[in-house]
Nucleic acid binder design. Structure first.
Lengths: 197, 197
DNA sequence: CAAATAGTGTCTCTAAGACACTATTCC
DNA sequence: GGAATAGTGTCTTAGAGACACTATTTG
């Protein structure tokens, strides 16, 4: 589970990780994950991970989705050989978890470091393409500056402003308002974008 | 599990389905599927489905891969809410199963009809992009005519010959030999393509 | 030669990246 | 005015689809 939060102070995407309570890798930081109960839906298992492992309340979850299914052998010395990577948008980062930028990851248990790296490309690809994912990160209304920093966090470098504007204009269900707001301390204020519905 | 076989007589891709031995949907045609054992790898579960449900021997399986993970509620009145769609290439269609073209599907149990439809787009997208998948359908050496008919089966219409040639030339690990072979009863014989290794 | 199939070359369209230029704000 | 940020317009490139034309086989 990749729990993502856009921090409007540091102006970057931060990933929620937590110290493990049990062996193996006790006390070491890891991505929140749970075993899927028989007949349980992915969405419910994801919520359990967010609330139980990260301490994020349910109403601070802005969205949940599926990323990819890993099937590597020996991922976990214990049991499951199958794991499903999911994303979640978090509006309020819980104090009980550690929130870290994607390009300064601490050491993580299992192969979680690799999972984050592999998933980052997929997240960057889903941004502005998957409306549910994009909106979970931006919220309903957001200035262009946020879009710029969110994109920069996921792809690893600052995108071209012109191209980003063109991309945003082409996103279905997203439109630009007349409103302007200063997201930074200097410079021209940015236009506000708004999701429909 | 979408078990695919390229029939060189009918010159199209055929899908392996089998009558269910148990309730629910007993005696009705369905995609072969098995429950994933705890700690079992997807690849092994897929082989169990192929041999157990379709009667395809292990050495007639030219490849296995992962397509997509479905997470719809109430897919199956019984238990698992999660199912993973996989593809398999089959070199010899087993007599004990029913092999049907993709655009003339019989009625299938559960929501398997929809799964096939949804997966067909993914299969078409993977063709000539995923070398393991492509090679599992073509075999190590194949004439251009086979590539044409395989592509036509997956995308639903005949592709442009010129564009297909360009596509094949660009596939890594695939090269065109000087050899020509007549795959059809008339017309100019086609070049033979060969996978490296 | 006619019909059928195989193969080559080119045109267009679109999406994405790069970049030059203008616009608006704070200091 | 200068620095910083926001926004517009255009150029180039890569890939995919469409299509005109040539090449090689059987009957």
């Amino acid at each position: 589970m990749l729990a993502l939060h856009f921090d409007r102070t540091s102006r970057r995407i931060e990933l929620g990780v937590a110290a493990r309570a049990q062996d193996p890798f006790r006390d070491q930081l890891a991505l929140p994950g749970v075993l899927l109960g028989l007949g349980e839906r992915l969405h419910d298992a994801a919520l359990r991970a967010l609330t139980g492992k990260l301490g994020v309340p349910v109403d601070a979850v802005s969205g949940i989705g599926q990323l990819v299914t890993f099937d590597k052998p020996n991922r976990d010395p214990r049991g499951p050989t199958l794991s499903i990577a999911m994303w979640a948008g978090v509006t309020e980062p819980a104090e009980s978890a550690v929130w870290t930028p994607l390009d300064q990851l601490p050491d993580l248990a299992f192969d979680h470091q690799r999972i984050v790296q592999d998933s980052r490309l997929l997240l960057a690809g889903a941004l502005w393409r998957d409306p549910a994912f994009s909106r979970a990160l931006t919220g309903r209304r957001f200035p262009t500056a946020d879009a710029l920093d969110i994109t920069a966090s996921l792809i690893g470098r600052a995108p071209d402003r012109g191209n980003l504007n063109r991309t945003l204009r082409a996103v279905p269900g997203l439109h630009r308002t007349e409103e302007r707001v200063a997201a930074r301390s200097t410079g021209r204020p940015a236009a506000v974008w708004e999701w429909d519905g």
